[in-house]
Design a protein around this nucleic acid. Structure first.
Lengths: 250, 250
DNA sequence: AAGTGGTCTAGACCACGGG
DNA sequence: CCGTGGTCTAGACCACTTT
């Protein structure tokens, strides 16, 4: 805060990262971890500047970048707010199947087959990329579009990461949407392949056994914690995944 | 460049966009259009500042953001360079099939079946999203990994967008890699589905007719021009698409 | 009217790397 | 060494929106 000429800025030529990066990282961490939920009003530029002992410009650069990146939304006179999660992130978004179906003008319904809490098996641990044992919630359900099968879902939820899930019965609310609300910002890895429907799958999806299905497997991480694993099976020829791809700009 | 207090900066309260955005847009446009090819050394901060009549800070902010976005690479003392295209853009990248196969430790080879220049048919125009007629180059080839079929490719190239393609015979170089070099920065739309192999496909891919295949259809645009359409057919159970997904940060 | 973000400046100092 | 990027500042003025 002092005026200077020949001064104190770079007194730490050590491995310290820049102030910019520190502020940026702190804010991201607050958002990604959920401590600052969507809609939360984060500190004003001036407050951040005071808090970190930097000029307003430095805080402003961070907030500007984060708002261009879509994490924040800024409104004059009101402040800066955590933005809603990756809505339609234009990439290979986390499908909100309910919204997807409704966007097609169809009725949405879903049915839960399996809901079971148990200690993670080896398979569960590998699917969730867990290193230490723990309890998981296993779910199996089907999504229906106007009473026709749309997508079969198998899911594992790491109860260590999302303990609240244990109290949900998911008989009326599908797990995908609920999880998005609980854990807004995430990192995901999708694996897409094409397989023939097995006996169970063909029955549930009302297609022939052996018919091509699109399988999306997804691992989800939040703040370095594995949250959930899902396997979504779509009747192959009825469903297409669309992914857009633009140079990273603003 | 004048010193001021009570001054000329905001003399254009008009709808003019900010200087920052203008510089940013200009640079992006140079890169996306290919006028500044990968590796090109763009003007120094100080030169840009002089050219646009702004302070070095303003130019710096633009270059910093573009380098965080991955479009530019900056090296002290050397300058700022246009970065190589979206290498492994971690999303659903433009697959460079040759590199993909070599990364698996397999030999890469490819065979061209069809090479034909003709006026765009209705199908061609719809695949390329063309509005006006024109000539297209149609290709059909197969990619082999250690002499085993890996992926079947059908492709259309809009000769109005890439006239140089007419002189290429693509008997030794696959079109995908060549196009990436010609048209580095692009916008793409992928559609992924799962279909049963038809007669031709099963023969070329050496799988059973009706076996599930992963089909990736891609439309590619550059600078608002439709460049190419491709349909890649993978034997479904042998191939998986992986897409990562991180919150947009730096 | 007051408070917030939006933009810009003219400098300053440092770190790094090629010559 | 010296030129480049990397970071930061203390202020300035504007535009917008709520009160």
């Amino acid at each position: 805060m002092r005026h200077k000429i020949s001064t104190d800025k770079a007194n730490k030529p050590e491995h310290a990262q820049s102030l910019h990066d520190r502020i940026m990282g702190d804010i991201q961490s607050h958002i990604v971890s959920g401590r600052w939920a969507p809609g939360f009003r984060i500190p004003f530029e001036t407050d951040l500047a005071a808090q970190y002992g930097c000029s307003r410009m430095t805080a402003n650069k961070v907030l500007t970048q984060l708002s261009r990146a879509g994490l924040l939304e800024r409104k004059r006179k009101l402040g800066t707010f955590v933005k809603a999660p990756q809505a339609q992130s234009a990439v290979l978004e986390i499908h909100d199947i309910e919204r997807e179906i409704k966007a097609l003008g169809l009725d949405y319904e879903f049915q839960l087959f399996v809901r079971d809490v148990h200690d993670a098996t080896d398979t569960d641990m590998s699917r969730l990329s867990l290193e230490t044992p723990g309890q998981v919630l296993e779910l199996s359900c089907i999504h229906l579009a106007s009473e026709r099968p749309f997508c079969l879902e198998e899911r594992l939820i790491n109860l260590k990461a999302v303990p609240e899930a244990q109290n949900m019965d998911f008989s009326t609310e599908p797990p995908g949407g609920w999880l998005l609300k609980q854990v807004p910002w995430i990192e995901a890895e999708h694996t897409i392949s094409s397989v023939p429907a097995d006996c169970d799958e063909s029955r549930h999806l009302e297609i022939d056994e052996g018919a091509p299905c699109l399988v999306v497997e997804r691992r989800t991480r939040n703040d370095e914690r594995n949250v959930t694993w899902a396997r979504l099976i779509y009747p192959g020829q009825q469903h297409k995944l669309v992914a857009k791809f633009t140079p990273p700009i603003s």
